[in-house]
């Protein structure tokens, strides 16, 4: 039994090995893009809209509202990044009920990749908003001696993002696999339902934390202490 879908090699050629993680990522990508394309093909602003448009509008509207509440800024510049993050993790976890499917988020490589993306997105958004000098100044606050801790904090929270998501999804999948061996009837279903719930919660947490980090980087008067507290409370989950 494999802990990570990385170990399932589907195709290998000249040192390039396409594993299950990448393949299922593609599946999720294709699914998302196809639904988006189909739904946004005939958009209307009239009073009568299609169900798919309505569904996507609800999701996107909810994401916008959440991001607006957390960042206290215009959410539109962050929406493509944060929205994609949420939709990708959410759909990846949701498809776990499909037999034979391995959620890409159950691979530490995927979660690391996402965490790295967040890690780089924070300074990109911060510099775009505040400028190079103002952005890097916050590492020297409250004093220059705190700079190593600030840098370590950046790295450690990225690591925490990756491991938290991986651990939760992987454990969920693993628990179902173990329970199938012990009590093959009914109990795995309950655990699977629980796994779905956890998957959605993790998607939410990952996105919200990414939003908080970006918000702290882009806020004009950044208050690192408060944000650290907020981060801590989220991590408790």
């Amino acid at each position: 039994m494999e802990i990570s879908p990385d170990a399932i090699i589907i195709f290998q050629w000249n040192g390039i090995h396409i594993n299950a993680t990448i393949v299922f990522t593609w599946v999720v990508m294709v699914l998302l893009i196809f639904i988006s394309w189909m739904a946004t093909k005939n958009l209307t602003i009239g009073p009568k809209i299609t169900r798919w448009q309505n569904f996507l509008e609800v999701i996107v509207g909810y994401i916008r509202q959440q991001v607006r509440e957390i960042t206290q800024q215009n959410p539109d510049p962050f929406i493509p990044f944060l929205g994609t993050l949420f939709l990708f993790i959410s759909v990846s976890n949701l498809l776990a009920i499909v037999p034979g499917y391995h959620p890409p988020t159950g691979s530490l490589s995927t979660t690391s990749a996402l965490a790295i993306c967040v890690f780089f997105a924070i300074p990109i958004f911060g510099i775009a908003k505040k400028g190079m000098r103002d952005y890097f100044k916050h590492y020297l606050e409250p004093s220059i001696f705190m700079m190593p801790f600030n840098v370590i904090g950046d790295f450690s929270r990225t690591l925490a993002l990756a491991v938290r998501l991986f651990g939760n999804v992987m454990s969920g999948t693993l628990i179902v696999a173990v329970l199938l061996i012990i009590t093959p009837l009914f109990v795995p279903i309950l655990m699977q339902v629980l796994g779905l719930l956890i998957g959605q919660i993790q998607a939410y947490i990952f996105t919200v934390l990414a939003t908080v980090y970006i918000a702290s980087a882009t806020r004009i008067e950044s208050k690192p202490e408060q944000i650290d507290q907020k981060e801590g409370s989220k991590e408790d989950e």
């Binding site: 893009i33 739904a39 994609t84």
Partner: peptide, 16 residues
């Protein structure tokens, strides 16, 4: 995925 969703989903939906 970010690029494609931005193009096919978020921009369109937000605009609408």
């Amino acid at each position: 995925l970010v690029y494609l969703l931005k193009r096919f989903l978020f921009n369109r939906i937000i605009k609408i």
